[in-house]
Simulated scan of single mutants.
Amino acid sequence: PRQGVALLFRTRASSFLRACYYLPQILPVGVAGILWNWILNSQTGAINRILAGLFGMDKTPDWLGDPDLAIYAVMLMLVWSQIGYPVVIFMSALGRVDPELYEAASLDGAGWWRRFSAITLPQIKPEIFVVVLTCTVAALKVFGPVYMLTKGGPQSSTLVPSYYSYINFFGKSQIGYGAAIASVLAIVIAIVASVIMVFQNRSAAREREGALIV
């Protein structure tokens, strides 16, 4: 099965598949929010219809109205809308890994996990750092899914800093407080990005030192 999937991605169908994965990334957040409101609707949503049909559930979850579930609904939309970016990045990264390295490792008796940890991960490490950095920043400053799905509710269970700042700016006209929240969020994002970049630079330095030793 793995070889079949790999072959499929090397054929002309790979462009179509990449486009399908990347399509949610370019959808306007308003369109994506309307779509997910339909999917997650507690009465007529597709997910609850499937659950009721497959498992005969009389009471289906209220994904957007339950404080314990709403944050996961927001996370689901965020992951769906952002998944195309890392998929395209990693597909490009895997395309530049020399297949002869895998063949040599296989001849030496290396299993799939050994090949993955010793060949694939080191080869795509720069892309891993880029994806971790960009996706972490996107998660920290998330606004669109919260605005479209829950408006910070229910019971403030999805009240993220960016939306809280928006409420104070435009809802309560507390400009100073909203600006303070936005400033703190920007500082946190800068710190997290700096930490990730420090780890990336140290990893690159160790690789250069290893190459010089060899």
Rank of each mutant, 00 (worst) to 15 (best):
L78T: 11
I213T: 14
Y163F: 14
G84V: 07
I124D: 08
G176W: 09
G210N: 14
M75D: 04
L185C: 09
F116D: 06
R18C: 10
R115V: 02
W36T: 00
Y166R: 11
R12P: 03
S42D: 10
L94V: 07
L76Y: 02
S81L: 01
A182H: 07
T150A: 05
T11K: 08
V195C: 08
V160N: 09
E127H: 11
A73K: 02
R208E: 15
A205G: 11
G4T: 09
M197P: 12
D58W: 14
L7Q: 14
V188A: 05
V137N: 13
G153K: 03
I119S: 05
I196H: 05
G84T: 03
L64S: 00
G30V: 08
Y21T: 02
P99A: 07
V142T: 09
I191T: 09
D58E: 15
G84F: 03
P67F: 01
D98H: 13
F55Q: 06
E103K: 11
Y85Q: 10
I196T: 10
E209K: 14
Q155A: 14
R206Y: 13
P61Y: 02
V146K: 06
N48Y: 00
N201R: 15
G176V: 12
I89R: 08
M148N: 12
I71F: 02
P161G: 10
G144D: 10
G178D: 12
V88L: 12
A110F: 00
S173W: 15
M197C: 13
D62T: 05
W38K: 06
S203T: 13
A190W: 07
G30D: 04
E207D: 15
R114N: 05
L107S: 07
G152F: 09
Y147M: 12
Y21N: 03
E127Y: 11
G109L: 00
G95Q: 14
A46T: 03
I167P: 12
V88W: 06
G53L: 05
T150Q: 04
L212Y: 15
I167K: 15
D98I: 11
I34G: 03
N41Y: 05
L40G: 00
I128Q: 08
A180H: 08
T60P: 01
L76H: 04
C135T: 15
F90S: 05
I128E: 10
V31F: 02
I39T: 01
V97Q: 06
W112P: 07
C135I: 13
I89P: 08
T11V: 03
I71Q: 02
G109Y: 00
F9P: 01
V5D: 08
G144W: 05
M91G: 10
N201V: 14
W36E: 00
S165H: 12
D62E: 06
P126S: 10
L40K: 02
R49T: 08
T134W: 15
F9E: 06
V184Q: 07
I26E: 08
A179I: 13
R2G: 15
V88Q: 03
G144H: 03
I34W: 04
P61S: 03
Y164V: 12
A93N: 08
I50Q: 07
A32H: 01
I124F: 10
Y177W: 15
L121I: 15
P154C: 06
S81D: 02
G153R: 07
S15L: 14
I71W: 07
S81H: 04
D68V: 11
V132D: 05
I47E: 01
M77L: 10
V195G: 02
G84L: 05
G95W: 09
V31L: 01
S203Y: 11
G176H: 13
I71D: 01
D108R: 02
